[in-house]
Amino acid sequence: MDASKAPSADGRLLGTLTAAACHDLMNVFATFNQALGLMDDCLAADAKTTRRTFGIKGGFAYRERFVELTAMLRGQLARAVGLTEALALAAHSVDGQGRTVAPPEALAALVALAERLLKRRKITAEVAPSDEADPCWPTLRRADYLGPVLETILACLPHLPMGGKICLSCRPDGDALAVTLAPGEGELPDDALAAGLYAARAAGAEVAPGKTLTLVFRESPTTQPASCPPQADGAS
């Protein structure tokens, strides 16, 4: 690993604390999930009692509303779980713990976490799956590419049309990782391209020339080459 890119003590601390909090949040969500399941079980038991007693017992008056509310809570719970998983993954990118993930999954987590920032301009983002069936990803720390990609997206945002869409894709390029940021349709506006180019370079990424922004991240000379098929990242 390039020592100059090693996370600071502050970064590692924040990563460790965030990941620990995410772990506990998952325990909270697991309890919510079981409690919601138990509510469903109680409703089912009530319906059974009503049927069995021909309506003499049971018959919860607010059943339909209750079912709607539990469904809503399940949806919100799924959202919270998704965000927490993404946050844990990001936190582990600086503390060097957690599971190994391929770059498309790491980018998807980044997009999930940045959703609130993108919404300011009503912009949506998606990450394309890899073209190759089992790509051999270079060994890179997540933090080495997620940070510059986020800074590039944020720099482009003010120059993108409201309500637009951005697409992220990535592929191995020899011993490097190439991450492309493109609009949902057409080409990036010139000022978005310029702002993104500047931000990417300032964040330490190489940028391949073209009408899309393709950021290139190379393994540091001291990094051992990745062995296939294990996925890239993480192993810092």
Partner: peptide
């Protein structure tokens, strides 16, 4: 938890039947 997948895999090596991720269905 998701971040504990490595522990789950380690557990399988130690003879666990399987592991499941929280929150749990």
């Amino acid at each position: 938890g998701q971040a504990g997948t490595r522990d789950g895999m380690e557990g399988m090596k130690l003879g666990a039947f399987d592991y499941l991720l929280k929150p749990l269905e």
